[in-house]
Amino acid sequence: MDNAVFQVTIFLYIAATAGFLINIITLKKAAAKAANAFLYAAFGSHGLAIALRMFMAGHTPLVTMHESLSFFAWCMVGAYLLMQAMKKIKSLGAFVTPLALVVMVASSLQTKKILPLSPALQSIWLPIHAVICLAAYAIFALAFCAAVMYLMQERQIKGKHLGAIFRRLPSLENLDTMIGRCLGIGFPLLTVGIITGSIWAENAWGSYWSWDPKETWSLITWFFYAALLHQRLTVGWRGKKAAIMTVLAFGVLIFTFLGVNLLIPSEHSYVTNFQ
């Protein structure tokens, strides 16, 4: 059941992505409107799929890679829709939606089996820690999209080749403001996520911090974003270099999120056998 809804959701994401891409190529407003409607529908059905899975599993479905990726994409789209409702940023959908689609496709390629929870994971801290971390990741994903757009637009204006991209992308300052907001929301979330993780670790294993690879990389990611935000707040650091840093930091984050799990055995590996 939840799988059928999940499949429908993927098709809705494909439709929304197609709509946004058509809009950015042809500048037809109708395409963007349709895409937006598809995206709202996708967000709804995606939420339904997650709820169904939660109901069937009997626990927060944030244990396997499939579940985490799916929730990450859902947060990203949710944050995007919220942001657009508050302050519309031109053409952002054409960047966020394809990224969400890629994450969804990656999620659908993972095993969808519902795994029984190991004792260590049976805790109230599971939903708290995982939801907060994945929400932070999603916000940083939006910052990443805005940073990529910023770099593209910046290149156009600096190089004085004001072509098709120039007309389609929003203004530098709007993108920069959005990056700033995302950092301002994402960083506290990440901080709280790491703290809750550490509290949970103390509860489960008796130690707040055990330098397992996931923890180490989380800290590295945290330092990246901390540095970025610090520079921004103290000396007003922004523009091209800040955008490049935002992209790099997101790369580190993705490695923390996926790379560590795939490459390095760790407590956080979404596989069953916890000690």
């Binding site: 637009q153 203004s171 530098l172 709007n174």
Partner: peptide, 9 residues
């Protein structure tokens, strides 16, 4: 036009 692409508003 250009200023608007840099500053938005």
């Amino acid at each position: 036009e250009l200023a608007k692409k840099i500053f938005g508003e």
